[in-house]
Each structure stands twice: as structure tokens, then as C-alpha cells.
Design a protein around this nucleic acid. Structure first.
Lengths: 143, 143
DNA sequence: AAACTTAGTGAGAATCGTTCTCAACAAGAA
DNA sequence: TTCTTGTTGAGAACGATTCTCACTAAGTTT
């Protein structure tokens, strides 16, 4: 089991959630993911660890992980995708609409300017991640 | 009919689209909207202008308007909302998840910082709008 | 270790937003 | 006015997500 998965399990347990076999499997999959995965993809991978996992449980576990701040869901087009996230305060997700890879970027300069603007307008940002859809460098060249 | 609606119709016509009654109604609704509207809401309003409009046509017209750059679609949670947009190059949508009002903000400072970052990573942004979900000033105080 | 409480589960039905299908219609050109 | 064909409405179809419910098992209490 990965360290990341263990940490998440510990945190969930501390928050009063039960650590069940299906949850273990989903957490392990999400913790190991190198790109964003759709719920169906997560299901397929989780079933390699625990064959009995159901799709509903994947959704439910994703909800829990999101509520507890261990994961963010990003969207590409009309489909929803799930992504393990870091704990950085204000960061951006560059989502490649072709290969679905998610690159996180951060810039203090940018963050500062944005936060100042948000305060000026009095807007309270609840989603700490900002998503920019487009094409990553790789997919641009191979298109 | 609003000036905005007339302009959009002219542009669509110039692009070879037919200006039909249902389209006229949807365009009028979108042009007049002061906040983002769901397709269902647009349908309801459009039917006050042309009672025969169907939901499919609302979706189709939204697609056309988006393709022609007269509108952007933003999402709140799992629901999709539609929004009339300005023509600014790089702007942000502050979407209030409570009242659905969309505030556009812009700042050369952070636009510059962001563009620099994107170029550094080699990412090509295809969606010019960035969406920040949260609570507007009004809804914060009345919560 | 056994019993107990109840959060969590899988399967499939239900729901929701969106897209598709297709015969009928009407916009705009001739 | 006629003609061509892009556009339409209704409802079926679709895909993603949520719900329902009887059953299971995690973690606590004995």
C-alpha cells in the first residue's frame, strides 16, 4: 500500500469513517493515479484489488474523499473526472482535453493578484482549484 | 428586441445560419439575461416569446451561440448553466453557487502572469474563461 | 472471542441532463 | 410563388450519477 493511501486512510479513520475493503481499494487506486481517472476507470482498477466493488461505492467514496479534501473532481466536456490533488492553497489545473493529464501550476505573483481582485469584489472562493482546459505540450505536437 | 440580440442575429445570419422564430426567442432570452440560466430556465423564458419552442432547440441554439463565440457555458456542480459573455480575451467568471450570478473580472497583472506560466509549461489554453466557484458578497452576508 | 450496533455495501432501478431520430416545417434563394 | 434544405418539436435514447433496500462487515462493547 502506498504511503499516500495510508495517510488518507488514517485521516478518514480519524474523522469517523470506517475503513472498508472497497474504500481501501478505491483509495489505493486514486492515490496511485498519475492522471485523472473517470469513475468507470477507477472502478475497473479497484476491482483488480477487490473484485466485488460496485460503481455506487466508487461514487460514494469519491464524495467522501472530496468532502475531506483529499481529492478534487475536474470536468472535461460533459464528463466528470476524478483527480487526486495536492494540498497547495491556490493552484491551477491545466487539463489536457486529449490525454486527460492534469498539470498543476502555481505562481505567487498570480495568486496574489487574483486574491487581491477577489477581495476587492468581496467574493469568497470555495473551490481552491482553477481549471484551464486546453492542450498540453505533448498533444499539441502530435495533433 | 434588444440591441445585443440584434447584433447576435446579424452575426449568425452572416455566418449562414437561418434566423428562425425559436432561435430569435432563445437569443433574446440569453441577450437579456442578467445571470446565468439553465437550459430549462431558458426554455421557460423563451416560451413566453414563442410558446412552441422545444428543449432540444434550446440546446441546439446554445451550441450554435457557443460555437460562434456569443456565449459561454459554465457549470455549477453537476448542472450546466449558460451565460452570455463579453468578448474580452482573458477573463474570469466568479460564479456564485447560491444565486448563480456570474461576475466577470479581469486584470492585466494576473493575465500576464498566467500567460507567462502557460507558455513556460507549453500549455495551449482553449477555454479562454476561467471559472471560480464560491459565494458572492451578497450571499455571504445573507447566509 | 462473541455479540452488537450501525455505517457501509452491491445490484439494479430511478433520475437527471443532454443528445439523437425523424417526419414535418419554414427561411431564404431563385 | 416555388423550391431547397437547414431547422424544428416530440419523444425515444443515452450516459452519468444518485437512490433504494435488504444485506454485510467494521469497530466497539462486552
Amino acid at each position: 500500500m502506498s504511503k499516500r493511501a495510508r495517510d488518507i486512510q488514517k485521516a478518514l479513520s480519524a474523522s469517523g469513517y470506517r475503513i472498508t475493503q472497497p474504500r481501501r481499494a478505491v483509495i489505493e487506486v486514486v492515490a496511485r493515479a498519475r492522471r485523472s481517472l473517470s469513475p468507470e476507470e477507477i472502478l475497473a482498477r479497484a476491482r483488480k484489488i477487490d473484485p466485488g466493488v460496485g460503481l455506487a461505492t466508487v461514487y460514494r467514496t469519491l464524495d467522501v474523499l472530496q468532502a475531506e479534501g483529499h481529492l478534487e473532481r475536474v470536468r472535461i466536456g460533459n464528463r466528470g473526472y476524478s483527480l487526486a490533488c495536492s494540498e497547495k492553497a491556490l493552484h491551477f489545473h491545466l487539463i489536457c482535453e486529449r490525454c486527460r493529464t492534469v498539470t498543476e501550476i502555481q505562481s505567487d505573483q498570480f495568486s496574489g493578484a487574483l486574491i487581491a481582485q477577489l477581495q476587492a469584489v468581496g467574493f469568497e472562493s470555495r473551490k481552491s482549484a482553477i481549471e484551464i482546459i486546453g492542450l498540453c505540450a505533448k498533444c499539441q505536437s502530435s495533433e
